[in-house]
Nucleic acid binder design. Structure first.
Lengths: 339, 339
DNA sequence: TTGAAAGCGTTACCAC
DNA sequence: GTGGTAACGCTTTCAA
């Protein structure tokens, strides 16, 4: 285990000079620089994280978190992750500021970001809305040397340094594969219930799902309807969907408000022979799986989505090492027995 | 963020005294002790991990790892985890020593442990064989103040401080649930192919599976055979199993050597209408899933089994905080689409 | 362009 | 019983 001190003494310079070279702060004679780099390589120098972190504590780093879906139960697990990482980072003199917005109003999310910037955050983790203004804001922060990591939903065109979350297309494909697996010899006429057309992840899931449906003769989609993540709306649209399409024998809920839709299924007595697959593991969905009405739910590791972005930002700010750009969470399948 | 220094100055004592109290080293006047504890509580003192680790580096901690299954491809992912955590801990001046044994010979595993103890390890992570001698050895280490964490397979009667790995009973239940889900209206006559009767996890999976089968009228078990985790043996026993039981329409592989068994299925042309479920995600299994012969595989987060025990031991030795006793890894279901 | 020194929080050791 | 001090590895600031 080589240290800066060691390199310094071998190179016949002070620790400060080695630090300047290793961290590219400039202002070092090219020859000394070359010598130092050579020695560092020869010793396979790896900076000591404890030392770095201890030293970084004097900065009192502040990390900001912005999310949509204040009242969306999905985010409860994300928040549990946030809480844990907050406790962990708090003992490194690093503070976390969280803001969440209830709706998908662009202005509100941007305002939340601005608020955090004003309170002096050094980096931002955001579950972003898929809107141009948000992209622009992230790019603005990048110019101010405030790095951003997106989570849950990505904005690939922005200057965010990384993304942590699901590969939604693949998770839609997984649902289709699961439906086929559960019904190997049955023609499936599927009703798809989305959340909101403005939310990228829901539409991407449906794209992946459609692709997969297209490649299986026995699968077909009757209709796609939207519930705005609202239980009452969901009850209504599913009721109408099932009445209009008596041939439907499978339902795919791509978003929240699943229990409302399931009530409609029960109301019409259409449970029998109905295959239902949902996403995420909110309490009401767990109940419906235990009950047997929903056969499976496909999840996206929400807890990790809370923890990892902040961990990566903290590491980036302290040790300086660049995070992986795309960090897909696992696509987890839960059925009655392993939920 | 309160520090020892702060507490010391408030209590009117030195940092050394505070350290003695907080870490229960004894030799402090009861009154001073009480005063210090009170202040620490009032300030909600949380030790600073970076400081602790930095200080602990002088000890040059050594962690030992012992595993069975040297040539078992399942352990490749475990080893990947080990490699990553080794890199992480190496920059804290902490070294990892790994020993793995090819067979299930009790003496070999105990010898491996002894070797590591002789090279001065401060703690042990072990994927233990289910044998009395190993239990005794772990208890011996405990007396020598060398803490042990079991992973992959537990020894609940030993003095190990924690376990990281699968809930095997539940994972067997999950397989049964999955079989039922895939075949909602079909009577399933299942052939069960275990690894070795001496390996606890395989037998536990089968117990869980049997429980679940018993509670579903449409599921039944034709026979249970053993393959010793060997491909050639597996080919033979499955061949015989399928010939003896022409009514078998489902196979459950509870252990390794799955590809050998699948060859037998193909040889006899019994693929059609056969439901096959396996465990773990070794390359040959992935191939068979993509091919469609195996419908699903139920996994146990091997990477985490490599990382977490060492992380927990390092934390335990440095910060001193007690790990959770039982750390079940997730039961993950993989099908063609999400593998 | 470089060096010296202080500081981050904890622990260990020696002295009293 | 207690205090003082050095040490862990790194960054930062001031001075030269």
């Amino acid at each position: 285990m080589s240290t800066i001190k060691e390199i310094a003494s071998l190179a016949g310079v002070s620790r400060g000079t080695v630090d300047r070279v290793l961290n590219k702060r400039g202002g070092v004679h090219p020859e000394t620089q070359a010598r130092i780099l050579e020695i560092a390589k020869a010793l396979d120098y790896k900076p000591n994280k404890a030392g770095i972190v201890l030293s970084a504590q004097r900065k009192n780093l502040k990390l900001g978190v912005v999310m949509f879906g204040t009242n969306n139960p999905f985010f409860e697990d994300v928040k549990a992750g946030l809480k844990d990482i907050e406790a962990e980072l708090s003992c490194y003199n690093c503070d976390i500021y969280v803001k969440s917005t209830p709706d998908f109003n662009e202005k509100n999310q941007i305002e939340a970001i601005d608020d955090l910037v004003n309170s002096g955050i050094n980096a931002l983790a955001i579950a972003p809305q898929n809107q141009d203004g948000v992209v622009k804001k992230i790019d603005e922060l990048a110019k101010m040397q405030i790095p951003t990591i997106t989570f849950n939903s990505d904005l690939p065109t922005s200057k965010r340094i990384a993304y942590v979350g699901s590969n939604y297309r693949k998770s839609g494909e997984t649902v289709a594969g699961l439906m086929k697996l559960i019904n190997p010899h049955k023609n499936l006429i599927i009703g798809v219930v989305g959340g909101a057309q403005s939310v990228l992840c829901h539409t991407e899931r449906i794209e992946g799902f459609k692709d997969m449906v297209a490649s299986h003769d026995s699968l077909s989609i009757a209709d796609v309807v939207w519930n705005n993540d609202d239980d009452v709306t969901c009850y209504d649209v599913v009721l109408k969907l099932l009445e209009t399409h008596p041939e439907i024998n499978a339902l795919y809920f791509t978003a929240g408000a699943i229990s409302g839709g399931c009530k409609a299924v029960k109301k019409l007595g259409r449970e029998k022979g109905m295959t239902i697959i949902a996403h995420d593991k909110v309490p009401s969905t767990v109940e419906l799986i235990k009950e047997g009405l929903i056969q499976a739910t496909v999840c996206q590791q929400p807890y990790i989505q809370g923890v990892k972005p902040l961990q990566m930002l903290f590491d980036y700010l302290t040790t300086g090492d660049q995070p992986e750009e795309i960090n897909y969470t696992d696509i987890e399948i839960y059925i009655k027995e392993n939920i």
